[in-house]
Every structure is written in structure tokens, then in C-alpha cells.
């Protein structure tokens, strides 16, 4: 749990940028999609989400605008910028490289230690 949570926490920005690559969106919709994608196991706190939105907007990776909902409160939508797309692709490259290396390092030439039945044979 802690390794998974830490890993996800470390990639909040990339996750948000990936969500916005699919199209403009807003806080709750992104969180709901994240819950669906993880089969209900993870969601971001709203505080985390808005802090990341602010950080990404200040960095020029996303921009925001208010929707014109006919009923109820307005939604604040976010859109990814060209800089944001480039940042996302860079983050994705780094992640692929890191995850490939970690996979090798955590096996260290051996087999997957998680499978008890294999060990007993």
C-alpha cells in the first residue's frame, strides 16, 4: 500500500496531464475517472488535486476556464497546453526508463519472490 501510494503521489502531475490529454476536464470528473481506472482503489484528495492544478497552471502546463452550465454552480475546466503535452511526454519517457530499471533491479537477476508455490517446488 505505501509503495503504491508513494508512487502514485509522485506522479500526480503526470496523471492529471494524462487525463487532460483525453480532453478538457474538471476536478471531480478526473477523480472519478481515476477511481474507475483503479477499480475503486484510489482517489486523490481534493486538496491534492487543486494544489496540483495550481502548480501546473503556474508552470504553464495547463490553463483553466469557467464553464457556462445552465443549472447549478459553474465548473472550472482545465485544458492542457503545448508545454504541458511536452512535459507529459518527458515524464512518460522518464517513467518508462525508471520502471524498466526498477523491474530489473528489484529482481536482481532472480525470479519473482512473490510466488510461494514456485519457491516450494
Amino acid at each position: 500500500m505505501s509503495i503504491t501510494a508513494d508512487l502514485i503521489r509522485g506522479h500526480t502531475d503526470a496523471i492529471i496531464l494524462a487525463a487532460l490529454l483525453q480532453g478538457d476536464s474538471y476536478g471531480y470528473r478526473i477523480n472519478r475517472a481515476m477511481v474507475d481506472l483503479t477499480d475503486g482503489r484510489y482517489e486523490l484528495k481534493e486538496a491534492t488535486l487543486y494544489t496540483a492544478f495550481r502548480r501546473l497552471e503556474e508552470a504553464g502546463y495547463i490553463r483553466s476556464y469557467w464553464g457556462d452550465e445552465a443549472t447549478g454552480a459553474r465548473r472550472r475546466y482545465y485544458a492542457i497546453t503545448l508545454n504541458g503535452k511536452n512535459a507529459y511526454y518527458a515524464m512518460m519517457r522518464e517513467w518508462r526508463e525508471a520502471s524498466g530499471l526498477l523491474e530489473k533491479l528489484m529482481r536482481f537477476g532472480g525470479t519473482d519472490g512473490g510466488d510461494d508455490s514456485t519457491e516450494q517446488i
Binding site: 506522479h11 477511481v35 482503489r41 502548480r55 508552470a59
Partner: peptide, 18 residues
């Protein structure tokens, strides 16, 4: 000064319980 830094994500995702 945090705005320019994008690598640090400030808070943890939480286990979502029903």
C-alpha cells in the same frame, strides 16, 4: 517559488474504501 517546480506532488492519494 513552488510554481516552477513540477516534480513534487504534495499529498498522498488515499485508499478508497466503500
Amino acid at each position: 517559488t513552488r510554481g516552477a517546480k513540477t516534480a513534487d506532488a504534495p499529498a498522498a492519494p488515499v485508499l478508497r474504501d466503500q
